[in-house]
Simulated assay, not measured.
Amino acid sequence: MNLTDILQQAGGLESMAKELGVSPGVAQQGADALLPAILGGFKKQIQGGGLEGLGGLIGQLGGGGLLDSVLGSQPTPVGQGNEVLGQIFGSKDISRTVAGDAAAKTGLDAGLLKKMLPMLAMMVAGYMAKQGGQSPGGGLGGMLGNVLGGLVGGGSSAPAAGGLAGSLGGLGKLIDMNGDGNPLDDILGMAGKMRG
């Protein structure tokens, strides 16, 4: 099961669709386009500070409550999601570039995708925190490794249209233009070209 399916089963995509006034199909299309970059950002955090560092960061930002905030009946406090994005992307320029890139691929409005980004970041971080609390012994760091390892390692066994796993398997082709395994530096480069 890929992460888009997991978030859909948890009710996250439906909650996001209702809050943004779009159909569940549009929410899923946006999630499929945005999640690879979000997971790439989490993966970069692990490479920089290790799993325990990322687990601690997610805990400070709200832990499992992040997912609950999106699922709740009140409007989502997207400030928390923007904090998560700030930690994994480093700048608003990258968030804008990710939304613009997803808009070009999907035909969805970039403004709508910008609203989806913090909500999706909250769902992913909250989901990982909740799963981390349930994994015996490994703690959040171990669980993050399992979730991200499984999702980011989507590889060639994933079907071409296999949702997130397939998207992540092809992340290098989509965003990692210089082949160094880190798509965010390439996203930054694209943002620089857009401004220039």
Results as ranks from 00 to 15, higher is better:
M1Q: 09
M1G: 12
N2S: 12
N2K: 08
T4F: 05
G11P: 04
M16V: 09
M16L: 15
A17W: 03
K18F: 05
E19L: 07
E19Q: 14
L20F: 14
V22H: 10
S23E: 10
S23P: 03
G25F: 06
G25K: 06
Q28R: 15
A31I: 09
A31G: 03
A31Q: 11
A33D: 00
A33Y: 01
A33F: 09
L34F: 09
L35W: 01
L35Q: 06
L35K: 03
P36I: 03
P36H: 06
Q45E: 13
Q47M: 13
G48F: 02
G50W: 02
L54Q: 02
G55N: 07
G55A: 15
G55I: 05
G55P: 06
L57I: 04
I58A: 11
I58S: 08
G59P: 08
G59Y: 04
Q60D: 13
L61C: 02
G62M: 02
G64T: 07
G64H: 03
G65Q: 09
L66I: 01
L67T: 10
D68Q: 14
D68Y: 00
V70G: 05
G72N: 05
G72S: 14
Q74M: 14
P77G: 09
V78Y: 06
Q80V: 08
Q80N: 08
N82H: 12
V84I: 06
L85H: 02
G86P: 04
G90D: 04
S91W: 11
S91N: 12
K92Y: 01
D93V: 10
R96C: 00
R96M: 07
A99C: 06
A99T: 00
G100E: 09
G100N: 09
D101C: 00
A102H: 04
A102P: 07
A103M: 04
A103T: 08
G107S: 10
G107A: 13
L108P: 07
L108S: 08
L108A: 07
D109G: 09
A110T: 13
G111M: 04
K114D: 11
M119I: 07
M122G: 02
A125E: 01
M128Q: 06
A129F: 00
A129L: 03
A129S: 13
Q131E: 12
G132Y: 08
G138M: 14
G139Y: 01
G141P: 06
G141K: 05
M143E: 15
M143T: 14
N146Y: 10
L148F: 08
L148A: 00
V152M: 14
G154I: 04
G154N: 11
G154H: 06
G155S: 15
S156Y: 07
A158L: 09
P159H: 11
P159F: 14
G162E: 04
G170N: 11
L171V: 01
L174I: 10
I175P: 06
I175Y: 13
M177Q: 15
M177R: 15
M177Y: 09
N178L: 07
G179E: 08
D180N: 15
G181I: 11
P183K: 01
P183S: 10
P183A: 05
D186R: 03
G189M: 10
M190C: 02
M190T: 12
G192I: 13
M194S: 12
R195W: 12
